[in-house]
Nucleic acid binder design. Structure first.
Length: 550
RNA sequence: GCGCCCGUAGCUCAACGGAUAGAGCACUUGACUACGGAUCAAGAGGUUGCAAGUUCGAAUCUUGCCGGGCGCACCA
Protein backbone atom coordinates (compact mmCIF):
# COMPACT_ATOMS: atom_id res chain seq x y z
CA UNK A 1 0.00 0.00 0.00
CA UNK A 2 1.48 3.32 -1.07
CA UNK A 3 0.99 6.54 0.89
CA UNK A 4 -1.40 7.66 -1.83
CA UNK A 5 -3.48 4.53 -1.40
CA UNK A 6 -3.56 5.10 2.32
CA UNK A 7 -4.57 8.70 1.80
CA UNK A 8 -7.53 7.55 -0.28
CA UNK A 9 -8.45 4.94 2.31
CA UNK A 10 -8.32 7.54 5.03
CA UNK A 11 -10.48 9.91 3.06
CA UNK A 12 -13.18 7.34 2.50
CA UNK A 13 -12.97 6.30 6.15
CA UNK A 14 -13.62 9.90 7.13
CA UNK A 15 -16.51 10.04 4.67
CA UNK A 16 -18.00 6.88 6.17
CA UNK A 17 -17.59 8.37 9.62
CA UNK A 18 -19.65 11.35 8.49
CA UNK A 19 -22.27 9.09 6.92
CA UNK A 20 -22.50 7.10 10.15
CA UNK A 21 -23.53 10.31 11.87
CA UNK A 22 -20.50 10.59 14.13
CA UNK A 23 -19.93 14.19 13.09
CA UNK A 24 -20.70 16.59 10.25
CA UNK A 25 -18.01 18.18 8.11
CA UNK A 26 -16.80 18.43 4.53
CA UNK A 27 -13.99 15.94 4.01
CA UNK A 28 -11.23 17.67 2.03
CA UNK A 29 -10.28 16.30 -1.38
CA UNK A 30 -6.66 15.96 -0.33
CA UNK A 31 -5.99 14.16 2.91
CA UNK A 32 -2.48 14.46 4.26
CA UNK A 33 -0.72 11.33 5.41
CA UNK A 34 2.75 11.86 6.76
CA UNK A 35 5.56 9.65 7.87
CA UNK A 36 6.04 10.43 11.56
CA UNK A 37 9.52 11.23 12.80
CA UNK A 38 8.95 9.15 15.88
CA UNK A 39 8.60 5.43 15.15
CA UNK A 40 6.30 5.02 18.14
CA UNK A 41 3.72 6.97 16.17
CA UNK A 42 3.15 4.17 13.69
CA UNK A 43 4.06 3.77 10.04
CA UNK A 44 1.98 6.76 9.03
CA UNK A 45 0.19 9.57 10.80
CA UNK A 46 -2.56 12.00 9.88
CA UNK A 47 -3.87 15.22 11.36
CA UNK A 48 -7.20 14.96 9.56
CA UNK A 49 -9.20 14.86 12.79
CA UNK A 50 -7.55 18.03 14.03
CA UNK A 51 -8.53 19.74 10.80
CA UNK A 52 -12.11 18.51 10.86
CA UNK A 53 -12.69 19.18 14.54
CA UNK A 54 -13.57 22.84 14.14
CA UNK A 55 -16.08 22.49 11.27
CA UNK A 56 -17.51 19.44 13.01
CA UNK A 57 -17.86 21.35 16.25
CA UNK A 58 -16.59 18.39 18.22
CA UNK A 59 -13.44 17.67 20.21
CA UNK A 60 -10.59 16.50 17.94
CA UNK A 61 -10.14 13.24 19.77
CA UNK A 62 -13.80 12.37 19.36
CA UNK A 63 -13.57 12.98 15.61
CA UNK A 64 -10.37 10.96 15.55
CA UNK A 65 -11.98 8.00 17.29
CA UNK A 66 -14.83 7.94 14.78
CA UNK A 67 -12.44 7.94 11.81
CA UNK A 68 -10.15 5.41 13.47
CA UNK A 69 -13.06 3.00 13.87
CA UNK A 70 -13.80 3.14 10.15
CA UNK A 71 -10.17 2.99 9.09
CA UNK A 72 -9.43 -0.03 11.25
CA UNK A 73 -11.91 -2.04 9.17
CA UNK A 74 -9.86 -1.48 6.00
CA UNK A 75 -7.91 -4.46 4.82
CA UNK A 76 -4.16 -4.13 5.29
CA UNK A 77 -4.40 -1.78 8.22
CA UNK A 78 -3.17 -3.45 11.38
CA UNK A 79 -3.71 -0.74 13.94
CA UNK A 80 -4.96 2.81 14.35
CA UNK A 81 -4.25 4.76 17.51
CA UNK A 82 -5.55 8.16 18.54
CA UNK A 83 -2.70 10.11 20.07
CA UNK A 84 -1.89 13.50 21.46
CA UNK A 85 -4.39 16.23 20.58
CA UNK A 86 -6.04 14.01 17.96
CA UNK A 87 -3.49 12.51 15.61
CA UNK A 88 -4.19 9.21 13.96
CA UNK A 89 -1.24 6.87 14.17
CA UNK A 90 -1.59 4.16 11.59
CA UNK A 91 0.25 0.86 11.41
CA UNK A 92 0.03 -1.31 8.31
CA UNK A 93 0.23 -5.08 8.09
CA UNK A 94 3.82 -5.96 7.31
CA UNK A 95 2.71 -7.70 4.14
CA UNK A 96 0.77 -4.66 3.00
CA UNK A 97 3.68 -2.34 3.60
CA UNK A 98 6.19 -4.78 2.15
CA UNK A 99 4.28 -4.93 -1.12
CA UNK A 100 5.89 -1.60 -1.93
CA UNK A 101 9.21 -3.32 -2.56
CA UNK A 102 7.76 -5.31 -5.41
CA UNK A 103 5.90 -2.33 -6.82
CA UNK A 104 9.11 -0.33 -6.91
CA UNK A 105 11.18 -3.06 -8.50
CA UNK A 106 8.55 -3.56 -11.17
CA UNK A 107 8.29 0.14 -11.95
CA UNK A 108 12.05 0.48 -12.14
CA UNK A 109 13.22 3.80 -13.54
CA UNK A 110 9.60 4.94 -13.71
CA UNK A 111 9.16 4.77 -9.95
CA UNK A 112 8.94 8.28 -8.57
CA UNK A 113 7.53 9.83 -11.73
CA UNK A 114 4.21 11.59 -11.40
CA UNK A 115 1.79 13.37 -13.70
CA UNK A 116 1.31 16.44 -11.53
CA UNK A 117 2.70 18.69 -14.26
CA UNK A 118 1.44 16.77 -17.26
CA UNK A 119 0.38 18.96 -20.14
CA UNK A 120 2.63 21.86 -19.26
CA UNK A 121 5.22 23.09 -21.70
CA UNK A 122 7.83 24.82 -19.58
CA UNK A 123 10.70 26.99 -20.70
CA UNK A 124 13.35 27.04 -18.00
CA UNK A 125 16.02 29.67 -18.42
CA UNK A 126 19.04 29.51 -16.15
CA UNK A 127 22.74 30.34 -15.88
CA UNK A 128 22.69 32.80 -18.82
CA UNK A 129 25.93 34.23 -17.56
CA UNK A 130 27.51 36.86 -19.75
CA UNK A 131 30.02 35.76 -22.37
CA UNK A 132 32.59 38.13 -20.91
CA UNK A 133 34.24 35.47 -18.78
CA UNK A 134 34.07 31.87 -17.60
CA UNK A 135 31.11 30.60 -15.61
CA UNK A 136 31.87 31.54 -12.03
CA UNK A 137 30.72 29.88 -8.86
CA UNK A 138 27.41 31.73 -8.73
CA UNK A 139 26.55 30.57 -12.23
CA UNK A 140 27.57 27.05 -11.26
CA UNK A 141 24.97 27.05 -8.52
CA UNK A 142 22.24 27.84 -11.03
CA UNK A 143 23.63 25.25 -13.41
CA UNK A 144 23.36 22.56 -10.74
CA UNK A 145 20.01 23.68 -9.35
CA UNK A 146 18.49 24.57 -12.72
CA UNK A 147 19.41 21.35 -14.46
CA UNK A 148 18.18 19.36 -11.50
CA UNK A 149 14.95 21.32 -11.46
CA UNK A 150 14.50 20.60 -15.16
CA UNK A 151 14.89 16.89 -14.45
CA UNK A 152 12.41 17.09 -11.59
CA UNK A 153 9.85 18.94 -13.70
CA UNK A 154 10.21 16.32 -16.41
CA UNK A 155 9.77 13.56 -13.85
CA UNK A 156 6.45 15.17 -12.97
CA UNK A 157 5.26 14.95 -16.54
CA UNK A 158 6.10 18.42 -17.86
CA UNK A 159 7.70 19.05 -21.20
CA UNK A 160 10.80 21.11 -20.42
CA UNK A 161 13.13 23.17 -22.57
CA UNK A 162 16.39 24.27 -21.00
CA UNK A 163 17.37 27.64 -22.32
CA UNK A 164 20.42 29.86 -22.04
CA UNK A 165 20.07 33.56 -22.85
CA UNK A 166 23.24 34.63 -24.52
CA UNK A 167 23.66 38.26 -23.64
CA UNK A 168 25.75 39.42 -26.59
CA UNK A 169 24.41 42.92 -27.07
CA UNK A 170 25.49 46.02 -25.27
CA UNK A 171 28.23 47.90 -23.52
CA UNK A 172 29.65 45.00 -21.55
CA UNK A 173 30.57 43.29 -24.80
CA UNK A 174 32.37 46.41 -25.93
CA UNK A 175 34.35 46.40 -22.69
CA UNK A 176 35.17 42.77 -23.26
CA UNK A 177 36.39 43.52 -26.79
CA UNK A 178 38.50 46.46 -25.63
CA UNK A 179 40.01 44.30 -22.92
CA UNK A 180 40.97 41.62 -25.43
CA UNK A 181 42.46 44.18 -27.78
CA UNK A 182 44.45 45.79 -25.01
CA UNK A 183 45.79 42.42 -23.92
CA UNK A 184 46.81 41.59 -27.48
CA UNK A 185 48.66 44.88 -27.80
CA UNK A 186 50.30 44.54 -24.40
CA UNK A 187 48.44 47.57 -23.07
CA UNK A 188 47.14 47.81 -19.50
CA UNK A 189 43.59 46.71 -18.72
CA UNK A 190 41.22 49.46 -19.85
CA UNK A 191 39.10 51.27 -17.34
CA UNK A 192 35.97 49.19 -16.58
CA UNK A 193 37.65 46.39 -18.49
CA UNK A 194 38.07 42.73 -17.62
CA UNK A 195 41.24 41.27 -16.18
CA UNK A 196 42.18 37.67 -15.61
CA UNK A 197 44.30 35.12 -17.38
CA UNK A 198 41.43 34.02 -19.60
CA UNK A 199 41.51 37.43 -21.32
CA UNK A 200 45.14 37.06 -22.37
CA UNK A 201 44.58 33.45 -23.38
CA UNK A 202 41.69 34.32 -25.66
CA UNK A 203 43.55 37.33 -27.03
CA UNK A 204 46.48 35.07 -27.89
CA UNK A 205 44.23 32.57 -29.61
CA UNK A 206 42.68 35.31 -31.72
CA UNK A 207 46.07 36.70 -32.66
CA UNK A 208 47.24 33.19 -33.56
CA UNK A 209 44.27 32.54 -35.82
CA UNK A 210 44.23 36.05 -37.32
CA UNK A 211 47.91 37.03 -37.66
CA UNK A 212 47.04 40.11 -39.70
CA UNK A 213 45.02 41.64 -36.88
CA UNK A 214 47.82 43.98 -35.87
CA UNK A 215 47.65 45.66 -39.28
CA UNK A 216 43.97 46.52 -39.00
CA UNK A 217 42.75 49.94 -37.95
CA UNK A 218 41.91 49.98 -34.28
CA UNK A 219 38.15 49.98 -34.65
CA UNK A 220 38.22 47.10 -37.11
CA UNK A 221 40.56 45.18 -34.87
CA UNK A 222 38.26 45.73 -31.92
CA UNK A 223 35.31 44.50 -33.95
CA UNK A 224 37.24 41.36 -34.82
CA UNK A 225 38.15 40.78 -31.20
CA UNK A 226 34.52 41.28 -30.29
CA UNK A 227 33.02 38.81 -32.70
CA UNK A 228 35.69 36.15 -32.46
CA UNK A 229 36.25 36.65 -28.74
CA UNK A 230 32.57 36.23 -27.91
CA UNK A 231 32.42 33.05 -29.99
CA UNK A 232 35.49 31.62 -28.25
CA UNK A 233 34.24 32.60 -24.82
CA UNK A 234 30.85 31.13 -25.49
CA UNK A 235 32.43 27.92 -26.74
CA UNK A 236 34.29 27.62 -23.47
CA UNK A 237 31.19 28.26 -21.42
CA UNK A 238 29.28 25.60 -23.34
CA UNK A 239 32.12 23.13 -23.00
CA UNK A 240 32.55 23.61 -19.27
CA UNK A 241 28.80 23.30 -18.70
CA UNK A 242 28.76 20.17 -20.83
CA UNK A 243 31.53 18.68 -18.73
CA UNK A 244 29.40 19.53 -15.72
CA UNK A 245 26.59 17.47 -17.20
CA UNK A 246 24.46 20.46 -18.15
CA UNK A 247 23.37 20.86 -21.77
CA UNK A 248 20.85 23.38 -22.99
CA UNK A 249 18.26 22.74 -25.65
CA UNK A 250 18.33 26.33 -26.84
CA UNK A 251 21.09 28.91 -26.74
CA UNK A 252 19.30 32.13 -27.48
CA UNK A 253 21.22 35.16 -28.74
CA UNK A 254 20.03 38.53 -27.57
CA UNK A 255 21.42 40.02 -30.77
CA UNK A 256 18.94 38.01 -32.81
CA UNK A 257 16.07 39.88 -31.17
CA UNK A 258 17.48 43.21 -32.23
CA UNK A 259 18.37 42.03 -35.72
CA UNK A 260 15.07 40.36 -36.51
CA UNK A 261 12.70 43.17 -35.64
CA UNK A 262 11.36 41.20 -32.69
CA UNK A 263 11.68 44.24 -30.47
CA UNK A 264 9.52 46.33 -32.79
CA UNK A 265 6.91 43.59 -32.92
CA UNK A 266 6.82 43.34 -29.16
CA UNK A 267 6.42 47.10 -28.82
CA UNK A 268 3.66 47.03 -31.41
CA UNK A 269 1.89 44.29 -29.50
CA UNK A 270 2.11 46.28 -26.29
CA UNK A 271 0.92 49.38 -28.09
CA UNK A 272 -2.19 47.45 -29.16
CA UNK A 273 -2.68 46.53 -25.52
CA UNK A 274 -2.63 50.27 -24.72
CA UNK A 275 0.43 50.09 -22.50
CA UNK A 276 2.83 52.21 -24.57
CA UNK A 277 3.23 55.99 -24.58
CA UNK A 278 5.84 58.49 -25.65
CA UNK A 279 7.43 61.17 -23.54
CA UNK A 280 10.65 63.20 -23.58
CA UNK A 281 11.53 61.64 -26.92
CA UNK A 282 11.52 58.12 -25.49
CA UNK A 283 9.05 55.24 -25.72
CA UNK A 284 7.68 54.10 -22.37
CA UNK A 285 5.90 51.01 -21.07
CA UNK A 286 3.25 51.79 -18.47
CA UNK A 287 4.35 49.11 -15.98
CA UNK A 288 2.85 51.15 -13.13
CA UNK A 289 -0.52 49.78 -14.28
CA UNK A 290 0.62 46.53 -12.69
CA UNK A 291 2.41 47.49 -9.53
CA UNK A 292 5.83 48.62 -10.74
CA UNK A 293 7.06 51.71 -8.91
CA UNK A 294 7.69 53.61 -12.13
CA UNK A 295 7.13 53.31 -15.84
CA UNK A 296 10.03 51.95 -17.87
CA UNK A 297 11.77 53.27 -20.93
CA UNK A 298 11.71 50.76 -23.76
CA UNK A 299 13.26 52.82 -26.55
CA UNK A 300 15.66 55.50 -25.36
CA UNK A 301 15.47 59.04 -26.70
CA UNK A 302 18.55 58.35 -28.81
CA UNK A 303 16.60 55.62 -30.60
CA UNK A 304 18.49 52.73 -29.01
CA UNK A 305 16.59 49.93 -27.33
CA UNK A 306 16.84 49.87 -23.54
CA UNK A 307 17.73 46.56 -21.90
CA UNK A 308 14.16 45.73 -21.06
CA UNK A 309 13.26 45.88 -24.74
CA UNK A 310 15.22 42.70 -25.27
CA UNK A 311 13.39 41.00 -22.43
CA UNK A 312 10.02 42.10 -23.77
CA UNK A 313 10.78 40.63 -27.15
CA UNK A 314 12.33 37.56 -25.59
CA UNK A 315 9.32 36.87 -23.42
CA UNK A 316 6.94 37.28 -26.33
CA UNK A 317 9.12 35.01 -28.41
CA UNK A 318 8.99 32.27 -25.78
CA UNK A 319 5.23 32.51 -25.50
CA UNK A 320 4.89 32.36 -29.27
CA UNK A 321 7.07 29.27 -29.29
CA UNK A 322 4.28 27.61 -27.35
CA UNK A 323 5.44 27.67 -23.74
CA UNK A 324 2.63 28.15 -21.25
CA UNK A 325 5.08 28.60 -18.42
CA UNK A 326 8.17 30.75 -18.74
CA UNK A 327 10.49 30.24 -15.79
CA UNK A 328 13.58 32.36 -15.28
CA UNK A 329 16.17 31.78 -12.59
CA UNK A 330 17.99 34.90 -11.49
CA UNK A 331 20.60 35.72 -8.90
CA UNK A 332 19.66 37.88 -5.93
CA UNK A 333 21.55 40.78 -7.45
CA UNK A 334 18.77 40.97 -10.04
CA UNK A 335 15.79 40.70 -7.74
CA UNK A 336 15.01 44.40 -8.20
CA UNK A 337 14.17 43.47 -11.75
CA UNK A 338 11.39 41.04 -10.91
CA UNK A 339 8.69 43.63 -10.37
CA UNK A 340 9.02 45.10 -13.81
CA UNK A 341 9.25 41.67 -15.44
CA UNK A 342 5.98 40.71 -13.80
CA UNK A 343 4.42 44.02 -14.82
CA UNK A 344 5.65 43.41 -18.35
CA UNK A 345 4.00 40.01 -18.33
CA UNK A 346 0.73 41.61 -17.25
CA UNK A 347 1.09 44.30 -19.94
CA UNK A 348 0.99 41.52 -22.51
CA UNK A 349 -2.27 40.37 -20.97
CA UNK A 350 -0.69 37.32 -19.34
CA UNK A 351 -0.88 36.26 -15.72
CA UNK A 352 2.22 37.00 -13.64
CA UNK A 353 3.23 34.11 -11.44
CA UNK A 354 1.61 31.65 -13.81
CA UNK A 355 2.79 32.36 -17.34
CA UNK A 356 5.92 33.98 -16.00
CA UNK A 357 7.68 32.73 -12.91
CA UNK A 358 10.91 34.25 -11.66
CA UNK A 359 12.97 32.25 -9.21
CA UNK A 360 15.42 34.28 -7.20
CA UNK A 361 18.42 32.44 -5.86
CA UNK A 362 20.66 33.89 -3.20
CA UNK A 363 24.33 34.32 -3.85
CA UNK A 364 27.26 32.10 -3.06
CA UNK A 365 29.85 33.45 -0.65
CA UNK A 366 33.34 32.13 -0.77
CA UNK A 367 34.97 31.79 2.60
CA UNK A 368 38.59 31.24 3.41
CA UNK A 369 39.90 30.96 6.97
CA UNK A 370 36.47 31.97 8.18
CA UNK A 371 36.51 35.23 6.26
CA UNK A 372 34.59 36.07 3.11
CA UNK A 373 36.56 36.33 -0.10
CA UNK A 374 35.48 38.98 -2.56
CA UNK A 375 35.37 37.85 -6.10
CA UNK A 376 34.93 39.74 -9.32
CA UNK A 377 35.40 39.22 -13.01
CA UNK A 378 37.16 42.51 -13.32
CA UNK A 379 39.46 41.74 -10.43
CA UNK A 380 40.29 38.49 -12.17
CA UNK A 381 40.14 36.30 -9.05
CA UNK A 382 37.09 34.28 -10.04
CA UNK A 383 36.54 30.72 -8.93
CA UNK A 384 35.24 29.12 -12.07
CA UNK A 385 33.18 26.08 -12.84
CA UNK A 386 36.32 24.32 -13.96
CA UNK A 387 38.20 25.20 -10.78
CA UNK A 388 35.42 23.69 -8.75
CA UNK A 389 35.21 20.52 -10.84
CA UNK A 390 38.98 20.11 -10.78
CA UNK A 391 38.93 20.36 -7.00
CA UNK A 392 36.09 18.00 -6.07
CA UNK A 393 34.71 16.44 -9.24
CA UNK A 394 31.37 16.83 -10.94
CA UNK A 395 29.31 14.65 -8.60
CA UNK A 396 30.46 16.28 -5.38
CA UNK A 397 30.15 19.79 -6.82
CA UNK A 398 26.68 19.25 -8.24
CA UNK A 399 25.44 17.57 -5.12
CA UNK A 400 26.83 20.15 -2.75
CA UNK A 401 25.26 23.01 -4.72
CA UNK A 402 21.94 21.28 -5.27
CA UNK A 403 21.35 20.13 -1.71
CA UNK A 404 20.66 23.58 -0.29
CA UNK A 405 17.58 25.68 -0.77
CA UNK A 406 18.24 28.36 -3.37
CA UNK A 407 16.82 31.08 -1.18
CA UNK A 408 19.43 30.92 1.45
CA UNK A 409 22.87 32.29 0.80
CA UNK A 410 25.47 29.60 0.62
CA UNK A 411 28.92 29.71 2.15
CA UNK A 412 31.56 27.61 0.51
CA UNK A 413 34.85 27.16 2.27
CA UNK A 414 37.71 27.20 -0.20
CA UNK A 415 39.81 25.03 2.10
CA UNK A 416 37.14 22.38 2.21
CA UNK A 417 37.23 22.14 -1.54
CA UNK A 418 40.85 21.11 -1.55
CA UNK A 419 40.72 18.81 1.44
CA UNK A 420 39.61 15.19 1.45
CA UNK A 421 35.91 15.30 0.78
CA UNK A 422 34.49 12.82 3.24
CA UNK A 423 32.27 15.58 4.56
CA UNK A 424 30.13 15.70 1.43
CA UNK A 425 26.95 13.68 1.95
CA UNK A 426 27.07 12.64 -1.69
CA UNK A 427 29.55 9.94 -0.65
CA UNK A 428 27.14 8.62 1.92
CA UNK A 429 24.38 8.35 -0.66
CA UNK A 430 26.58 6.94 -3.41
CA UNK A 431 28.08 4.40 -1.05
CA UNK A 432 24.63 3.22 -0.12
CA UNK A 433 23.92 2.70 -3.81
CA UNK A 434 27.19 0.83 -4.33
CA UNK A 435 26.26 -1.41 -1.41
CA UNK A 436 22.89 -2.28 -2.90
CA UNK A 437 24.61 -3.26 -6.14
CA UNK A 438 27.14 -5.34 -4.28
CA UNK A 439 24.42 -7.18 -2.43
CA UNK A 440 22.79 -8.12 -5.73
CA UNK A 441 26.08 -9.47 -7.03
CA UNK A 442 26.80 -11.45 -3.88
CA UNK A 443 23.27 -12.79 -3.81
CA UNK A 444 23.52 -13.97 -7.39
CA UNK A 445 26.79 -15.72 -6.58
CA UNK A 446 25.15 -17.87 -3.92
CA UNK A 447 22.00 -18.45 -5.92
CA UNK A 448 19.53 -16.02 -4.34
CA UNK A 449 17.12 -14.70 -6.95
CA UNK A 450 13.91 -12.72 -7.13
CA UNK A 451 11.78 -15.81 -7.68
CA UNK A 452 10.05 -15.58 -4.30
CA UNK A 453 8.45 -12.56 -2.68
CA UNK A 454 6.80 -12.92 0.72
CA UNK A 455 6.31 -9.36 1.97
CA UNK A 456 4.97 -10.40 5.36
CA UNK A 457 8.50 -11.57 6.15
CA UNK A 458 9.76 -7.98 6.17
CA UNK A 459 9.08 -7.34 9.81
CA UNK A 460 12.22 -5.87 11.33
CA UNK A 461 12.02 -2.28 12.54
CA UNK A 462 14.67 -1.25 10.06
CA UNK A 463 12.63 -2.89 7.30
CA UNK A 464 9.44 -1.02 7.99
CA UNK A 465 11.46 2.16 8.30
CA UNK A 466 13.15 1.53 4.98
CA UNK A 467 9.86 0.65 3.30
CA UNK A 468 8.08 3.78 4.46
CA UNK A 469 11.07 5.83 3.34
CA UNK A 470 10.93 4.22 -0.10
CA UNK A 471 7.23 4.99 -0.29
CA UNK A 472 7.90 8.70 0.15
CA UNK A 473 9.85 9.11 -3.05
CA UNK A 474 7.03 10.01 -5.47
CA UNK A 475 5.70 12.62 -3.08
CA UNK A 476 9.14 14.12 -2.64
CA UNK A 477 9.51 14.38 -6.40
CA UNK A 478 6.09 15.95 -6.75
CA UNK A 479 6.75 18.44 -4.00
CA UNK A 480 10.16 19.35 -5.38
CA UNK A 481 8.46 20.06 -8.69
CA UNK A 482 5.59 22.09 -7.28
CA UNK A 483 7.83 24.23 -5.08
CA UNK A 484 10.71 24.40 -7.55
CA UNK A 485 12.96 23.03 -4.83
CA UNK A 486 15.13 20.20 -6.13
CA UNK A 487 17.16 20.23 -2.91
CA UNK A 488 14.36 18.24 -1.33
CA UNK A 489 15.38 15.27 -3.44
CA UNK A 490 18.92 15.41 -2.08
CA UNK A 491 17.77 15.65 1.52
CA UNK A 492 15.44 12.76 0.98
CA UNK A 493 18.20 10.61 -0.48
CA UNK A 494 20.36 11.22 2.57
CA UNK A 495 17.53 10.04 4.76
CA UNK A 496 16.91 7.03 2.57
CA UNK A 497 20.60 6.14 2.52
CA UNK A 498 20.59 6.27 6.32
CA UNK A 499 17.60 3.94 6.50
CA UNK A 500 19.31 1.58 4.12
CA UNK A 501 22.63 1.53 5.99
CA UNK A 502 20.82 0.77 9.23
CA UNK A 503 18.86 -2.02 7.59
CA UNK A 504 22.01 -3.45 6.02
CA UNK A 505 23.63 -3.44 9.41
CA UNK A 506 20.94 -5.52 11.07
CA UNK A 507 19.24 -7.52 8.30
CA UNK A 508 21.40 -9.67 6.07
CA UNK A 509 20.32 -10.61 2.57
CA UNK A 510 22.92 -13.39 2.36
CA UNK A 511 22.81 -16.23 4.83
CA UNK A 512 25.66 -16.47 7.31
CA UNK A 513 28.18 -19.27 7.03
CA UNK A 514 26.44 -22.52 6.15
CA UNK A 515 22.87 -21.40 6.84
CA UNK A 516 20.22 -22.36 4.33
CA UNK A 517 18.84 -19.85 1.89
CA UNK A 518 15.26 -19.05 2.89
CA UNK A 519 12.42 -16.95 1.59
CA UNK A 520 13.56 -14.25 3.99
CA UNK A 521 16.78 -13.93 2.01
CA UNK A 522 14.94 -13.92 -1.30
CA UNK A 523 12.39 -11.36 -0.14
CA UNK A 524 15.06 -9.10 1.30
CA UNK A 525 16.74 -9.08 -2.07
CA UNK A 526 13.61 -7.39 -3.40
CA UNK A 527 13.96 -4.73 -0.76
CA UNK A 528 17.61 -4.25 -1.66
CA UNK A 529 16.79 -3.88 -5.35
CA UNK A 530 13.94 -1.50 -4.54
CA UNK A 531 16.36 0.67 -2.58
CA UNK A 532 18.89 0.55 -5.39
CA UNK A 533 16.16 1.66 -7.77
CA UNK A 534 15.12 4.66 -5.72
CA UNK A 535 18.68 5.76 -4.96
CA UNK A 536 19.55 5.56 -8.65
CA UNK A 537 16.38 7.37 -9.73
CA UNK A 538 16.95 10.08 -7.15
CA UNK A 539 20.60 10.63 -7.98
CA UNK A 540 19.62 10.85 -11.61
CA UNK A 541 17.26 13.71 -10.80
CA UNK A 542 20.24 15.54 -9.35
CA UNK A 543 22.47 14.78 -12.31
CA UNK A 544 24.77 12.81 -10.05
CA UNK A 545 26.06 9.37 -10.98
CA UNK A 546 24.98 6.22 -9.16
CA UNK A 547 28.25 4.27 -9.10
CA UNK A 548 28.49 0.51 -8.61
CA UNK A 549 31.73 0.94 -6.67
CA UNK A 550 32.95 3.75 -4.47
C1' G B 1 14.46 56.10 2.99
C1' C B 2 11.81 52.02 0.17
C1' G B 3 11.84 46.82 -1.53
C1' C B 4 13.42 41.42 -1.68
C1' C B 5 16.07 37.35 0.88
C1' C B 6 18.22 35.48 5.26
C1' G B 7 19.08 34.85 10.91
C1' U B 8 18.09 27.31 13.63
C1' A B 9 23.86 22.89 17.40
C1' G B 10 30.97 25.07 17.37
C1' C B 11 30.75 24.89 11.37
C1' U B 12 27.75 23.92 6.66
C1' C B 13 22.67 23.34 6.19
C1' A B 14 17.31 20.63 6.72
C1' A B 15 12.42 20.66 8.65
C1' C B 16 3.69 20.13 3.55
C1' G B 17 1.27 25.09 10.30
C1' G B 18 2.05 19.27 13.78
C1' A B 19 3.91 15.36 18.45
C1' U B 20 10.53 15.21 22.02
C1' A B 21 13.37 21.12 16.09
C1' G B 22 16.85 17.08 12.61
C1' A B 23 21.32 15.46 9.38
C1' G B 24 26.53 15.82 7.94
C1' C B 25 31.35 17.61 9.62
C1' A B 26 34.05 18.35 14.22
C1' C B 27 34.13 16.19 19.60
C1' U B 28 33.57 11.71 23.39
C1' U B 29 32.76 6.24 23.90
C1' G B 30 31.83 1.56 21.80
C1' A B 31 31.19 -2.47 17.37
C1' C B 32 34.84 -6.06 12.21
C1' U B 33 37.75 -14.38 11.76
C1' A B 34 29.76 -12.66 8.92
C1' C B 35 26.70 -9.32 2.29
C1' G B 36 32.77 -3.52 1.44
C1' G B 37 33.98 0.06 8.39
C1' A B 38 33.37 5.66 2.90
C1' U B 39 29.29 1.71 7.82
C1' C B 40 26.63 1.09 12.49
C1' A B 41 25.38 2.00 17.94
C1' A B 42 25.57 5.41 22.07
C1' G B 43 26.77 10.41 24.14
C1' A B 44 27.33 15.56 24.26
C1' G B 45 25.82 19.97 21.79
C1' G B 46 19.49 24.61 21.01
C1' U B 47 15.49 30.16 24.82
C1' U B 48 15.05 28.46 16.25
C1' G B 49 18.08 36.91 16.68
C1' C B 50 14.38 39.69 20.32
C1' A B 51 9.18 40.89 21.64
C1' A B 52 4.09 40.68 20.97
C1' G B 53 -0.13 38.54 18.11
C1' U B 54 -3.15 34.71 15.27
C1' U B 55 -4.79 28.93 17.14
C1' C B 56 -5.94 23.03 19.58
C1' G B 57 -0.64 23.65 17.98
C1' A B 58 4.42 28.53 15.38
C1' A B 59 11.32 27.76 13.35
C1' U B 60 7.20 28.24 9.77
C1' C B 61 1.77 32.90 9.35
C1' U B 62 1.03 38.69 11.06
C1' U B 63 3.19 43.18 13.21
C1' G B 64 7.30 45.85 15.46
C1' C B 65 12.37 45.98 16.67
C1' C B 66 17.91 44.09 16.15
C1' G B 67 21.64 42.07 12.84
C1' G B 68 23.55 40.45 7.82
C1' G B 69 23.26 40.11 2.30
C1' C B 70 21.37 42.24 -2.20
C1' G B 71 18.78 45.75 -5.00
C1' C B 72 16.20 50.56 -6.00
C1' A B 73 18.83 54.19 -14.17
C1' C B 74 16.72 56.85 -20.83
C1' C B 75 23.41 50.71 -17.27
C1' A B 76 23.45 45.96 -19.14
Amino acid sequence: MTPDDLSLALRSAATRAVESGAFTADVPAEVVVERPKNRDHGDYASNIALRLAKPAGKPPREVAEAIAKQLLAVEGIADVQVAGPGFLNITLDSGTLGQLAKTIVEQGTEYGSTDTLAGHNINLEFVSSNPTGPVHIGGVRWAAVGDSLARVLQANGAQVTREYYFNDHGAQIDRFARSLLAAALGEPVPEDGYAGSYITEIAERIVASHPDVSNLPRDEAQELFRSVGVELMFGEIKASLHNFGVDFDVYFHENSLHDSGAVERAVQRLREQGRIYESDGAVWLRTTDFGDDKDRVVIKSDGEAAYIAGDLAYYLDKRERGFDRVVIMLGADHHGYVGRLMAMCACFGDTPGVNLQVLIGQLVNLVKDGKPVRMGKRAGNVITLEDLVDAVGVDAARYQLARSSADSTLDIDLDLLTRATNDNPVHYVQYAHARTVNVVKNAAAVGITLDVFEPQLLTHDTETALLTALGEFPRVVAQAGELHEPHRVARYLEELAGSFHRWYDSCRVLPKGDEQITDVNRTRLWLDVATRTVLANGLSLLGVSAPERK
